[in-house]
Amino acid sequence: MSHPHTHTHTHAHAHQHGQHDQHRHQHSAEDDAALAEVLDLDAEVLAEHLAAITDWLPLERAPQRIVDLGAGTGAGTFALLRRFPEARVTAVDASPGHLLRLREKARALGLDGRVTTVQADLDAADWPDLGTPDLVWASASVHHLADPGQALRRVRGLLAPDGLLALVELAGFPRFLPPDAPVERPGLEERCHAATDHLHAEHVPHRGADWGPVLTAAGLTVTGERTVAVDIAATEHPSVGRYALAALRRMRTAVAELLDPADLAALDRLLDADGPDSVALRPDLAVRTERQVWAARR
């Protein structure tokens, strides 16, 4: 499902500085594993919100064939399989590591007979054969593409005549800390967000787009739109602390060179899992964000 989006800059940064292939592959594997942890925790903590979105989808009938574009480690795939027990899902992602993790989860849940994985770059000139799905699910993936309009036109061509596209996007990276935290550097998280916003403007220009006009331009008709607010306190879910720790560690990777040294030191104290100031130990944490959903037909 959703990707907390701090990985694009670090990936681009490695390419811009021309590091050799072996280093890039090592970096990519490490980044893949870190992102997979965040995706898994995102799916765990936001499971009820995800279920609410799948319940809302304006479908005329239960889909049999579903394509999950940018499936990651399977948050959307498994939510859709739970919601539609007769359906089969083709999970598409560029990361072999994420797809391996998804297949392992499917086997553990006894769902491997209902899941097919396809490794593909959605920016490539040609897409693999994905059949004629009744539902295409694209969560936190389309904004990463170089040409989202082209991808959405391809989705239109894939869909069955009465098929539906569900486009889900995050309204930015989640917030976790209260505004006055930490005591020695109040507002630290907002300054980290300001730094990532600067990076995303350069490297992920489609993040935060109004997708309604883009869908229309791709030949699709928007049939539903919804915003889902997320506000989950650490006292309400046992994994909020671990989610905050994993997500903020990824944010640190992206913004370390842009932060004031005092801010970076304060952030490192929060990210020391064994330290007394570990963010995972804070009782005042909450996951706060929004998810926006567009439903569209041919």
Results as ranks from 00 to 15, higher is better:
A195S: 12
R185L: 03
T227Y: 03
H144M: 05
G187F: 06
V118F: 08
G187R: 13
L59Q: 02
A229C: 02
R114C: 03
F84T: 12
W56F: 01
D68G: 06
R65K: 02
H5G: 14
R82C: 06
A140L: 09
Q19T: 07
P161G: 02
L167V: 04
E37A: 14
E189L: 14
L46A: 09
S95H: 08
E30Q: 14
S239M: 14
Q22W: 14
W56L: 04
H206E: 09
D231F: 10
D162A: 12
L264T: 08
A286T: 10
H13I: 02
R61L: 00
V168W: 00
R269P: 06
D68K: 09
T221V: 02
V38M: 07
D197W: 02
L165T: 05
A201Q: 13
G241E: 12
D210N: 15
A146R: 15
W211S: 02
R82H: 14
T116C: 08
L50Q: 11
H27D: 11
L164D: 03
D21V: 07
T227Q: 15
T216K: 05
V240D: 11
R154G: 08
E189C: 12
A106C: 13
D126K: 11
A43E: 13
A296T: 08
A247Q: 06
T221C: 02
H143N: 00
L35W: 03
P182W: 07
E169D: 12
L188M: 04
P178E: 02
H25K: 11
R103P: 00
I53L: 10
R191P: 05
A52W: 01
A201E: 13
A229P: 14
A266W: 12
P4C: 07
H200A: 10
L145D: 07
P4I: 12
W211M: 04
R175L: 11
P174T: 07
L177V: 03
W127N: 12
A295K: 07
L35E: 14
A140G: 15
V38Q: 06
A52H: 08
L102M: 03
E30I: 11
D277C: 11
F173K: 09
V45Q: 08
S95T: 10
P213K: 11
Q16W: 12
Q292H: 14
T221H: 12
T116V: 09
A75Q: 10
V287F: 00
A91P: 06
D93C: 01
H144L: 12
D210I: 02
T90D: 02
R282L: 09
T117V: 14
L220D: 00
V115H: 05
A166C: 07
A244I: 09
A75R: 08
R249F: 00
A33H: 14
H143L: 05
E184D: 13
V228I: 10
V67A: 12
W294V: 05
G70I: 15
D231W: 05
L152Y: 01
D284N: 12
E37D: 13
G187Q: 13
H98D: 01
Q119K: 09
R297C: 00
A273K: 15
E86S: 12
E44Y: 09
F173D: 10
L46H: 11
D21K: 14
R226N: 06
